[in-house]
């Protein structure tokens, strides 16, 4: 319950404050979202598995976002930003998909 409330609170904060993203950070926003989603689905699955750990969740969330942004930044500097973004999205996408499949099996037993 608390996580859902927290999520909604964050969304409301975003709507209320309506921050403008600096142009320099804009390319990293989608990648950061994907990385965050990976951490979240991992957390949900861990919860359903009964091995959820707050510290692990927080650390993996922050690290995922930072590392994904760093990889894209590095790629941009090297001129392969698009390809590296694709790589990050593929890896995180596979993980999200796998975790969502596990969550699905938990919830629907199918």
């Amino acid at each position: 319950m608390i996580p859902v409330v927290a999520l909604i609170a964050g969304a409301v904060l975003g709507i209320v404050f309506h921050p403008t993203v600096p142009p320099a950070l804009q390319p990293y926003l989608p990648i950061a979202v994907v990385a965050a989603l990976d951490a979240v689905f991992g957390g949900v699955r861990a919860k359903l598995d009964g091995i959820f750990d707050d510290k692990q969740f927080v650390v993996s969330f922050i690290a995922n976002v930072v590392v994904a942004a760093l990889i894209v930044y590095l790629g941009d500097q090297l001129g392969v930003g698009g390809q590296l973004s694709t790589g990050v999205v593929v890896v995180l996408g596979v993980r999200i998909f796998g975790n969502v499949a596990a969550i699905r099996r938990h919830l629907f037993r199918a």
């Binding site: 999520l7 904060l13 950061a32």
Partner: peptide
């Protein structure tokens, strides 16, 4: 730890909304 976790989720909600608005 739970509080930090909830804060992280707040950050996530914020992030999602900002990305959507962007």
């Amino acid at each position: 730890l739970s509080g930090v976790s909830a804060l992280t989720l707040v950050a996530l909600g914020f992030l999602l909304v900002v990305a959507y608005q962007q």
